[in-house]
């Protein structure tokens, strides 16, 4: 554990909780992509199956349970409790275009051919692109609520901080996992356009709207 990894985890946690609180407080999930949330639920489920097979630390297990619970809680709020507020007309990204190629890639580029390892690798690849339906939705509606922007910024920052963590671990522990590193870089690059808009607009008190 190092400061980059911890900041990344806390940023990730903040993002997930921010989204839950936003939906709960406003009683609405307008502007949120249910498809991205479905993909994140698949990501956490396939990655954290190791909750049952290996124990790393109380911290790790606790965070995994929180991420899983929050993810399914978000799905429940979006698709059941506040379903009428879900803006499905603008959430039109075809997620099979992400699910299938990630699955195929996880059979091609994987460290070890075991079920757990392939599922873990799949979760890494799918996570890298899971935000695309949400970014697509923002581009289609041309705007995002400020709280949604904060959510996206925290979620994007998490993998960027993990990149710093991997650089740090490479020099201090000789730790190198090219699968997570490349996928993490792809994931972070997808947010770059949004980061630019966030810094130039939202941080100056303006609403995020596309030109």
């Amino acid at each position: 554990m190092n400061i980059f990894r911890l900041s990344g985890d806390l940023s990730h946690l903040l993002a997930i909780l921010l989204l839950l609180v936003k939906i709960w407080k406003t009683r609405s999930c307008a502007g949120i992509s249910g498809k991205s949330q479905i993909l994140f639920a698949i990501v956490y489920t396939t990655r954290y199956l190791d909750l049952f097979t290996s124990f790393v630390s109380v911290y790790n297990s606790f965070m995994k349970v929180v991420f899983l619970t929050a993810s399914y809680g978000t799905l429940y709020l979006m698709f059941f409790k506040f379903k009428p507020t879900y803006d499905h007309n603008h959430d039109s990204f075809r997620i099979l275009y992400l699910i299938i190629p990630s699955l195929v890639l996880s059979f091609i580029i994987v460290h070890v051919y075991t079920v757990m390892e392939i599922l873990w690798t799949y979760s890494i690849y799918l996570e890298a692109v899971a935000i695309m339906p949400q970014l697509f939705m923002v581009s289609r509606t041309g705007e995002a609520e400020t709280i949604t922007s904060h959510y996206l910024f925290a979620l994007g920052s998490y993998r960027a901080l993990y990149i710093l963590n991997w650089i740090y671990r490479y020099y201090t522990e000789d730790f190198l996992d090219m699968i997570v590193i490349i996928a993490g870089i792809v994931q972070t690059i997808l947010y770059c356009d949004f980061f630019y808009l966030y810094i130039t607009k939202v941080l100056k008190g303006k609403r995020l709207s596309l030109p």
Partner: peptide
């Protein structure tokens, strides 16, 4: 090469 067989990250 990779040394990450125990997945200690989230």
């Amino acid at each position: 090469y990779q040394k990450n067989n125990q997945k200690d990250e989230l």
